[in-house]
Design a protein around this nucleic acid. Structure first.
Length: 266
DNA sequence: TTGTCATGCATAC
DNA sequence: TATGCCTGACAAG
């Protein structure tokens, strides 16, 4: 379920399991065959994430950029007897060591980039709450983009050039927690409120990485919520708001479903 | 078994 | 704004 927390978590697994090792890289499905040939038997230098994108930096100026989109999936397995099983279904690319392998299926993007291209993408990407800096510059960059924009905050939070790693679930829940109407233009919101959204996104995504699931209700930070308890507004349209009792609303905002509470969010 | 939907985004109009 | 990508989970029958 790929919002930023999942991708960062995957990057950590990749770093721990594969970094510093020579990898066997191949494309069972064939759609990444030519690229795999360039990577095969090279050393993975580092795995890291920016928002929803994962980067696998190999030696000699080769980086793989992977974006899962809605469908993409990773599967990590050990090779107990040193042999990986035959790939099942459409595996775009398999990365292997002597002891482990990872299968990638259905990504929106899987491509090789040069260092120069990576640099360009990195500078374009919005601040990532999971790559926080000590100086506060990333928070300020986010704040400035929001305060200078006439665009609805519900759209701004989904824009990866404004804030990296937020998807439809975190968008809905962050705005609920902030008590903000998703339709409010960025430039109509106070600086304090925008800064609070940044801090809250750092908090929620960090919890998401640690727990492996999205938790947006503070009372479930220590005990695991059931499916029904999970969120304040996401996928709760027509049900009473947990705080004020008004029915949760749903509408389409730029083709994506937007969930919000007309009672709490103004 | 079939149908629908999805935590995303690039592209075309 | 609408469409296509391409996979898996789940509901409906």
């Amino acid at each position: 379920m790929p919002e930023g927390h999942t991708v960062h978590r995957t990057a950590k697994i990749f770093q721990k399991t594969f970094a510093g090792q020579q990898l066997k890289v191949w494309s069972p499905q064939g759609r990444f065959a030519a690229e795999s040939a360039l990577l095969d038997n090279r050393v993975l230098v580092r795995a890291y994430a920016i928002g929803k994108q994962m980067f696998l930096k190999f030696d000699r100026d080769l980086t793989v950029r992977i974006h899962l989109g809605i469908y993409g999936k990773w599967r990590f397995e050990a090779k107990p007897d040193g042999v990986a099983p035959e790939p099942v279904g459409q595996v775009r690319v398999r990365f292997e060591t002597q002891t482990n392998y990872a299968d990638l299926r259905g990504p929106t993007a899987c491509e090789i980039l040069t260092d120069e291209q990576v640099k360009a993408l990195r500078s374009k990407a919005g601040p990532d709450p999971l790559n926080p800096d000590q100086s506060g510059a990333e928070c300020e960059r986010f704040v400035q983009m929001v305060l200078r924009s006439k665009t609805a905050i519900g759209l701004l939070l989904m824009n990866q050039d404004v804030l990296s790693g937020i998807g439809n679930v975190y968008r809905a829940e962050l705005l609920f927690r902030a008590g903000l109407d998703p339709h409010r233009p960025g430039n109509s919101i106070s600086r304090e409120q925008v800064e609070a959204i940044w801090r809250d996104s750092v908090k929620l995504l960090t919890v998401g990485v640690a727990k492996g699931i999205m938790i947006t209700r503070d009372e479930f930070l220590t005990k695991r919520p059931t499916v029904d308890q999970r969120y304040f507004v996401y996928k709760r349209e027509g049900q009473p708001c947990r705080v004020c009792g008004v029915n949760v609303a749903i509408e389409l905002m730029a083709t994506r479903k937007l969930y919000w509470c007309p009672g709490c969010q103004s």
